[in-house]
Structures are given as structure tokens and as C-alpha cells.
Design a protein around this nucleic acid. Structure first.
Length: 780
DNA sequence: TGGAGCGTAATTTTT
DNA sequence: TTACGCTCCA
């Protein structure tokens, strides 16, 4: 039936499976796309192809996870000559759109505010307080996680309460109920609501599902491996009738399980849709043979996956470099040196990326890069919108759209300082609570103002200010932002601050005005509400700008979907990657492995995996073992090089040669010889260079690597006898203020810092510094 | 009322 | 290390 289609640009240069996916007609389609296999190309071509076969663009819905991916897809589809009008959204943006249309059916009123992570935590704390749940008992963050998980599963507070069997869970259930009540009062939704409410809407309203099914004849979902239950349901409902659902993804790149993403969704797609056509994209166009080989070998260690045979016609290229260092600083220095050398050899800075598991690692790297004058950028876009001054400004705007938004109101009521203090605010809150009226209404109440004497005058002035802003904000969005800045006094306060030589936070808020202008130009019908929604949905990943002319630093999570000619992954150490929290449950190690796999497969030509034998994190230096993932790589695709100094001969330990031979990880100790770099100077050896650390004697308590542990323990036992922890031994029962009763797994004394690992029934094993942690020994 | 300074506590990834 | 919350002081 597509005979009239010319083999146009749409089908040009596609390989066979790609072609098959693009030209698939009606019915469910699963595209299992390995890294670098041209997945985005397939999706965009498929969308264009569908339009070519007569499907109106506006009847196609494409769903992505990040705004960046959505924008990219739009751009490319338009580049293929397809008219605008296709629905290309993130799940969350789609949620906003549908809730603005149908939200009232699920208790979301027009003008609703989106509560971000920080806002929502405030509300959780408030709910905990209202329920009398003390935050020393249950961390607000943990409660928030539980609520989030419940929402992902569409569990209402009542349903959650039904499940709860422990004391803590019942407490969470109460908080959850209160939390929902507070959000409802304020007409606020959190990120999870954007999905959950839509899923509930679709579940409860067959007529709406029907309407939307007519609207969306084809549904395409990208990164399907990252969908959670709510997203799964949304995709399902939206394609219920026509069953034209095309999902693309890769189980091996599922890295958001901790946030509720369910890898089962993609693994069991064929069970959900028995007639699904499955296409595997296994040819990799991105990486060298060696890199791909290492990645394949690593991921083969996972059980929960769908087998794929990744292959490439690319050159084998250089081996994957695995570098070992004595400590984190060395690692950072050598990486910076290497980047500098690569740059001198003609490699653009923007060709290089450094990935790490946790943000905390970036500091040392930044330092080393800065010293050398190497430009770098950190992918942390949310940061901008999370700045205090930005959130303050947005607070004023949020109130305009949603007068019930109490979080925003409390934020701005005394920012900048206008003499409305804690006591006044507390009285207002009490009144609002007692009379069941919105805070803003109470604030506007002349009677209330009169009661408050001096403070009341200030309240009246504040109310007047809000009215003025409202007047001024009737015009264009950027005008509204400027009006807030000038009228509220924020501008004045920030100017003063800037003049006094502080951080230039004025520039940041001015940037917000620029962002508003840009928004006005981009969108056909700009509105303040829509502008705020967009800002609320900005994420880290959206801010990754590969063309910035700078080395990119980012977490492994943020790296998904990107590619770079040169990639460094740092901190490949047990406890860091895989992360220690994941090591507690063996299933999570698979996700850590996938995370590593994602990082590795971002590299096109050169890949460096590094680890240090000890690393300082949060001011504490700890010994670190090499990551198990380094052992799981295809060893023939890797080259192990040891740059660490004086390999562990302290106190007349083993000879160096012995150490080399005994090295279980197969590292080559580097003394004078260095890794080959085509046409370039070899690396400078750090070892013989009289580095500043060479002569520094480390305290033995900082070590703990295998054999060294014995030495420390011997020293430790002597120390232990006299310490308060003398009778704390493995097996001893203790109580932690938060985690409850646990049992000591191991205990290791040090100078003023006794470390111990304690296993808890419900929280797994955790390591503490006993002197610092709220831990007591159980009597008897 | 507001700010500074202190002590304390804990530490992942973020649409 | 750092961030937050609390108290105390101006």
C-alpha cells in the first residue's frame, strides 16, 4: 500500500533492521536498540515515514524522557520536511498538557503549581509535623521516596495504609495522606502527580481514552526501558484501541530503577503484545571495536536482559585504558594532563567528557582542570533554576497564577526582608489553619491586619505590592518578570549585594528575563503559566551542550544518550561504582553494571577507566578496592596500567616486584614506560617525579586494603582494649537512632575514629564512624 | 526580628 | 567537607 512512496530521503542509508523498523505498518513494534545503533534516526525516520503514508502529523504522539530529546526529535523530523503539528513531548510535559485539559476530573484545578523537589520536601516536612512524626525517627527524604514510589504504583494513601505493616510504614501512610491534603489545598502537584494523575484519569474515564485514541493514531515511546508503572499505563491507554504502539529502548541501558523505572516493561513487551514485531538494532556505528568488545563482555554478566550481539564495522582502535592511581588527586591530575596533551595534539576540548558516579567527585577534577586553564562545563542545568534568587523571583510569579500556592507565598513573604518575621507568619498560619482559609486570603483580611498592629501595616504593604505586580504582569511574560524584580525590591537588594562585591546574583535574575524573552519568541501563544511549567520541567540532561568548546563533566546518569570521541570514567571502585548502596542488594548491582555500560558506550574512539587506591570523600580518606567491573571487561580489549606510587610497602612490607606479580587485577606497574599515544609525547611518569606526596607518610589507620587490614587490626586490637568500644565486637547488638537495632559486622578502630559496619534488618549494611553516629550498645 | 555563629549529622543517581 | 538547623545575641 506504500507503493506510491518513492525511496526518498526517508529510507536513504538505513541498514536492513533499521529499514524494517521504519517501514513497519500497523500494530505493536518493539525496537531493541543497542548503543550507537542509530535509534534516534529510526524513530525520526519512522515518524516521517508514517506521515508519508498518509497519517496526519497531528495524529502522531512521540514521547521522550528529556526535553532535549524531544527538541532534537522535533528538529530532525522537521528537517525531513514533515510539517509541524506532531505531538512530541516528554512524559511529564504531556502530563501537564493533559492535566490542563482534563485535570479537574482528577482534582487538579486550572493554574496548578508544579512543586519541585525542594518544594515537595517542604510539604513533606510540614505534613510530618502535622502528623506528629518526628524527623529524627524518619528522614523526610525517606518518607518522600516512599510517597514517590507509592505514586508511581498509583497507590492512594488509603491503599498504601492497607499495605503498611510496620510501625514506620504506618507513619508514612499518615504523612502521605496529610501530604496529599496539603497539596490539594494549595492546588499543587509534584512530579509524580504529572504521571499518576494522568494514569488515574485514563483509568477512570473511558470516554477520554476514546477521544485521545482518536487523536493519537500512532504512539511512539523512546527509552522505554526507563518507564515506570504509571508511564507504562499511560502509553498503554493511549494506544489501547489502535494498538499502534512503537517502543524503542535497550534493557541494558535501564538506569533509573531506583526511581521506579521497571525494566520489566521492556523485557515483557512481547507478553503484553503477543503479536508484537521485534527488531534488533545490533550494528554499532559509534565506537571502536575494542570499546564495544569491552562493553559487551561487561554487560554479559547481567542476568536480566535480552541478549544482543553488538558488532561494528569500525576499526578496532586502541585498547581501553585502565589506569590505577594512589589517590584521587593523582587521578584528577593525570586526566587533566592527558586532556591537555590531547588538546595540543589537535583534539577539541568539546570532544572530551569525564563521567563519575556521584557529583561529589567532580570537585577534584574541576580543580585540576582549572589550574591548567582547561575550559570545562558541568552538566547541572537544574542548578540555575534552583538558585535562591531565581526561585524567589519565580515565587512571585507562581502566586499570580496560583494564589493558593502556599510554598511560594511563604518563600516571598519576607524576601527581600520587609519586616514580616517568624512570629507574624506563625500567627497567620495558625489563623489560616483555624479558619480553614487559604493563607493569602487571611493575609489580605483587614481585620487580621488590624489585630496585628505594627506587623499588620507591613502585611498591608505586602498585599499592595502583590496587587501592583499583578497589574504590571498583565503584559508579556518578560515584562512580568521585570516587574517582579523592580517592584518587589529584589533587584535593589541584589544590586546592593553585587556592589558589595558578592556573587553576581543580579546577573542570574536578569538571565531569567532573557529566558522569558527567548520563550516569547519561540512560542506562538506565550503565557506566564506555560512559561512556569516549562521551567519546572527543566532537567540536568537538558543542559548538556556538546558544542560548548569545553570539556564536559557529568554523572553517568546524565551521560545517557550522548557520545564523545574521548571519554574518561573515574572512580571505578567497589563502593563507588558499583555504589555501596547497590552492593547491599545483589539485584541493584546489575543496574550499576548497566550504568557502567552506558558510560563505556558513550565513547567513540578513546576510553579511559580509572580508579584510585584511596580516595577522600567528604573529608575522609578511605582505602578503595578496584571495581569488580574492571575484572569483568574483556581483558584482551583493555590495557591495565598502574600509576600508583610505592606499592604498599609500608613498615618493611613486601618488595615491589612481588607486589607486581601478585597483583590480582593484572595491572602493569609503570615505572618508566608509558602508554603509547600515536604521534604524541608519552605521558609523564608521576611515579619517579618527586611528587609532593612521595615523602608524605600516611597514618596506617587510613589503609585497609586486604593484607593491610591485618596490620591495622593488630594495631587496632591493642588500641581497642582501652577504648570505650572495647567490648563492641562483631555480633554485638546496637541501636541506631534512625535505623533501629542492628548487628555489628566488623569494627575497626582508628585514631579517634572507630569505624564499624552494622547490618540492620530493614536497611541493610551501613558503615559508621561510631564517635559521630547516634549509636548505642544494647544492654545485655 | 534578623542575622551570625555554632554544633551536629550524614552523605547516590533526578524526570 | 558541607549543609542545615538551632540558639543566642544585637
Amino acid at each position: 500500500m506504500h507503493a506510491h512512496l518513492e525511496p526518498s530521503a526517508i529510507l536513504a542509508d538505513l541498514n536492513e533492521p533499521q529499514r524494517q523498523a521504519v517501514t513497519h505498518g500497523a500494530g505493536p513494534l518493539l525496537v531493541l536498540a543497542g548503543p550507537g545503533s542509530g535509534k534516534t534516526r529510526v524513530i525520526t525516520r519512522r515518524a516521517a515515514y508514517l506521515v508519508g503514508t498518509g497519517v496526519p502529523a497531528r495524529n502522531i504522539l512521540a514521547i521522550t524522557f528529556t526535553n532535549k530529546a524531544a527538541d532534537e526529535m522535533k528538529r530532525r523530523i522537521e528537517g525531513l520536511g514533515v510539517a509541524r503539528g506532531m505531538w512530541v513531548h516528554t512524559f511529564h510535559a504531556l502530563g501537564v498538557r493533559l492535566l490542563r485539559e482534563f485535570g479537574e476530573l482528577v482534582g487538579v484545578l486550572p493554574g496548578f503549581s508544579i512543586y519541585d523537589e525542594a518544594d515537595r520536601l517542604r510539604v513533606v516536612k510540614e505534613a510530618m509535623q502535622a502528623c506528629g512524626v518526628r524527623d529524627v525517627l524518619l528522614r523526610p527524604e525517606a518518607v518522600q521516596d516512599e510517597i514517590s514510589n507509592a505514586k508511581n504504583k498509583l497507590q492512594s494513601p488509603a491503599e498504601f495504609a492497607g499495605w503498611a505493616d510496620t510501625f514506620e510504614q504506618r507513619a508514612v501512610a499518615r504523612v502521605y495522606e496529610k501530604y496529599e491534603e496539603l497539596l490539594r489545598e494549595r492546588n499543587g502537584v509534584d512530579f509524580d502527580d504529572l504521571l499518576m494523575r494522568v494514569a488515574l484519569l485514563l483509568r477512570g474515564h473511558a470516554d477520554i481514552v476514546e477521544r485521545l485514541n482518536i487523536r493519537f493514531q500512532h504512539v511512539l515511546v523512546d527509552e522505554y526501558q526507563d518507564t515506570n508503572h504509571a508511564q507504562y499505563l499511560i502509553a498503554r491507554y493511549l494506544s489501547e484501541r489502535h494498538r499502534n504502539i512503537c517502543v524503542t529502548g535497550d534493557p541494558d541501558q535501564s538506569i533509573y530503577g531506583w526511581r521506579g523505572a521497571d525494566i520489566k516493561n521492556i523485557l515483557e513487551f512481547e507478553r503484553d503484545y503477543p503479536d508484537a514485531v521485534v527488531v534488533r538494532l545490533e550494528q554499532n556505528y559509534r565506537s571502536t571495536g575494542m570499546i564495544l568488545q569491552a562493553a559487551s563482555a561487561l554487560i554479559a554478566n547481567n542476568r536480566r536482559r535480552k541478549h544482543k550481539d553488538l558488532w561494528t564495522e569500525n576499526q578496532p582502535g586502541e585498547p581501553v585504558y585502565v589506569w590505577r592511581f594512589s589517590e584521587g588527586q593523582d587521578e584528577a591530575e593525570q586526566i587533566a594532563d592527558t586532556i591537555q596533551r590531547l588538546h595540543q595534539g589537535g583534539q577539541a576540548y568539546s570532544d572530551v567528557a569525564i563521567f563519575y558516579r556521584v557529583n561529589a567527585i567532580s570537585r577534584g577534577l574541576e580543580e585540576s582542570l582549572r589550574i591548567r586553564g582547561i575550559p570545562y562545563r558541568i552538566a547541572r542545568g537544574v542548578e540555575f533554576y534552583n538558585r535562591k534568587e531565581i526561585k524567589d523571583t519565580l515565587g512571585y510569579l507562581r502566586i499570580l497564577i496560583n494564589p493558593a500556592d502556599q510554598v511560594a507565598l511563604l518563600r516571598i513573604i519576607n524576601t527581600p526582608a520587609r519586616g514580616i518575621g517568624k512570629t507574624t507568619i506563625e500567627r497567620l498560619l495558625a489563623t489560616a489553619e483555624r479558619q480553614h482559609r487559604p493563607l493569602l486570603e487571611v493575609l489580605r483580611d483587614r481585620g487580621v491586619q488590624a489585630e496585628m498592629k505594627g506587623a499588620g501595616k507591613k502585611l498591608a504593604a505586602f498585599v499592595k505590592l502583590l496587587d501592583q505586580i499583578e497589574q504590571a504582569a498583565r503584559g508579556p511574560v518578560s515584562g512580568a518578570v521585570s516587574a517582579v524584580l523592580s517592584l518587589s525590591g529584589l533587584e535593589e537588594a541584589l544590586t546592593k549585594e553585587a556592589e558589595e562585591g558578592g556573587e553576581d546574583r543580579l546577573a542570574n535574575v536578569q538571565e531569567l528575563v532573557t529566558a522569558a524573552r527567548r520563550y516569547e519568541e519561540e512560542v506562538e501563544e506565550p503565557t506566564l503559566a506555560d512559561f512556569l511549567y516549562r521551567i519546572a520541567l527543566v532537567s540536568d540532561q537538558d543542559q548538556v551542550d556538546e558544542k560548548a568548546g569545553a570539556v564536559m563533566l557529568m554523572t553517568l546518569h546524565a551521560a545517557k544518550g550522548l557520545e564523545f570521541p574521548v571519554v574518561f570514567i573515574v572512580g571505578l571502585e567497589q563502593g563507588l561504582l558499583p555504589h555501596e548502596n547497590a552492593l547491599m542488594q545483589s539485584l541493584d548491582v546489575e543496574e550499576e553494571r548497566r550504568l557502567c555500560f552506558v558510560g563505556i558506550t558513550r565513547a567513540r574512539q578513546r576510553l579511559f577507566l580509572t580508579h584510585a587506591r584511596q580516595r577522600m570523600i567528604r573529608g575522609v580518606t578511605l582505602p578503595r578496592a578496584a571495581s569488580q567491573f574492571l575484572r569483568e571487561l574483556d581483558q584482551s580489549a583493555a590495557r591495565f596500567e598502574d600509576y600508583s606510587r610505592e606499592p604498599w610497602d609500608f613498615g618493611g612490607g613486601r618488595a615491589q616486584a612481588e607486589e607486581e606479580q601478585a597483583d590480582p587485577d593484572g595491572f602493569v606497574a609503570l615505572h618508566d614506560h608509558l602508554p603509547p599515544e600515536e604521534g604524541q609525547r608519552p605521558l609523564r611518569p608521576r611515579a619517579g617525579g618527586g611528587s609532593k606526596w612521595n615523602h608524605q607518610r600516611r597514618r596506617s589507620s587510613e589503609f585497609g586494603d586486604e593484607d593491610d587490614v591485618r596490620i591495622i587490626n593488630a594495631a587496632g586490637e591493642a588500641l581497642q582494649d582501652t577504648s570505650v568500644y572495647a567490648d563492641w565486637k562483631p555480633g554485638t547488638l546496637v541501636r541506631h537512632a534512625r535505623y533501629g537495632v542492628g548487628q555489628i559486622v566488623w569494627i575497626r578502630p582508628g585514631s579517634g575514629q572507630t569505624r564499624a559496619a552494622i547490618r540492620f534488618a530493614r536497611h541493610g549494611e551501613k558503615t559508621f564512624i561510631l564517635e559521630m553516629a547516634p549509636i548505642e550498645k544494647l544492654q545485655r
